[in-house]
């Protein structure tokens, strides 16, 4: 298949691509895995999809952590404390 910036993949490619996440995570059993590997060896478009999908997964995993601003943690904790106080047993 001709590689280009945008392409409609053929049916055999799409069938294999449906298992690409499983292939990346090594969850495809051996005969099917070999079949995908052989296809990748001669299909430039599918190799690009494989590489870009792996990179997408890596970028998602590296997405920056969003910590709560201190003011948010304090506000929510204050609400929680009011709720806890309502449920606390009365002092003897």
């Amino acid at each position: 298949m001709k590689a280009g910036p945008s392409s409609s993949l053929g049916t055999p490619c799409l069938r294999r691509l449906a298992r690409l996440s499983a292939y990346i995570e090594r969850e495809v059993p051996s005969p099917a895995r070999e079949s995908i590997r052989r296809h990748m060896a001669h299909c430039a478009d599918c190799r690009v999809v494989l590489r870009t999908l792996k990179k997408t997964i890596a970028l998602c995993r590296q997405a920056p952590k969003i910590d709560p601003p201190q003011a948010v943690s304090k506000r929510v904790l204050a609400v929680l404390r009011r709720e806890l106080a309502r449920c606390r047993p009365p002092a003897p």
Partner: peptide
Amino acid sequence: EPDGGAFPVDDWT
């Protein structure tokens, strides 16, 4: 969907 039409195959990696 994997079969949802055009699939960009630009290798931006």
